[in-house]
């Protein structure tokens, strides 16, 4: 009904909110409490050095596997969201193909310690230097800058849940077949998000949210870097990269 009725009641919006919060809680991959507990567990200099000495191929493969795992949780989040599975299969794929990585990047701010500019990676918090062997310092720094700016908003878990739902349900994605259905779900999610912010006196963050182009640009940079890596190591990508990662990004 959320996709068909002309107007949504406050009760419907409240149901949608509760559904999105529950779907998010069930699929958030890492618990915030655990991330907070490990907040100051950083890699030692020796450990950072050993990551930096890894080959570019090994580091790329590791990161591709972690991104793929994170994306699988986002797919599950989408599937549990009211209305998503009522969209046609083409549009489900379009939205996930365009938005899954963007959601992963937003979710990353939970695993980011802005006080020492580190991110949770393979059991501890890592600085950008740890990723040196990937050969994409500019992209890594842009992702860290993005996580830093998002952290300054001090998102609550509920805010992340609704914000990421809105990152995913975007009726402006190209190749949608039933744009109006996506628009309707997006409008309801926007109402739900704004209603929650108003209730918590947090409307101020609306003006500080990252522009949609920012996330799109980070994802574009990631795909460009993958393209360069693939030119250098086509066999590695073909043989050892996760199939879902290749399907989405190359």
């Amino acid at each position: 009904s959320l996709l068909e009725s002309p107007n949504s009641s406050l009760t419907e919006i409240e149901h949608l909110t509760q559904n999105v919060l529950k779907s998010y809680r069930e699929t958030c991959q890492l618990r915030l409490e655990d991330l907070q507990l490990l907040r100051w567990e950083t890699f030692t200099k020796e450990e950072v050095g050993s990551y930096q000495k890894k080959s570019m191929e090994e580091m790329w493969e590791r990161c591709a596997c972690h991104i793929t795992e994170a994306i699988q949780y986002v797919v599950e989040f989408a599937k549990r969201m009211s209305g998503f599975m009522d969209l046609c299969q083409n549009d489900q794929i379009v939205l996930l193909k365009a938005g899954a990585m963007e959601v992963v990047l937003v979710r990353m701010c939970r695993a980011f310690n802005s006080e020492n500019r580190t991110v949770f990676f393979e059991g501890k918090y890592a600085s950008p230097e740890l990723f040196k062997s990937l050969g994409c310092n500019e992209l890594i720094n842009s992702i860290f800058d993005f996580a830093h700016s998002l952290s300054s908003l001090h998102f609550s878990e509920n805010e992340i849940a609704l914000f990421t739902a809105l990152v995913l349900i975007n009726s402006n994605r190209p190749w949608l077949q039933e744009k109006s259905k996506v628009e309707r779900l997006q409008n309801n999610l926007e109402l739900a998000f704004k209603h929650m912010l108003r209730k918590n006196h947090r409307e101020g963050i609306l003006a500080k949210l990252p522009p949609k182009g920012k996330l799109r640009n980070l994802c574009y940079q990631h795909m460009e870097k993958l393209r360069s890596f693939r030119q250098m190591y086509p066999i590695i990508v073909h043989a050892v990269f996760p199939p879902l990662y290749k399907e989405l990004f190359s």
Partner: peptide
């Protein structure tokens, strides 16, 4: 699109997850 995204399509169809 479904043809080009078989894994994503399968994940979406999988009701056991």
């Amino acid at each position: 699109l479904k043809e080009k995204h078989k894994i994503l399509h399968r994940l979406l169809q999988d009701s056991s997850s």
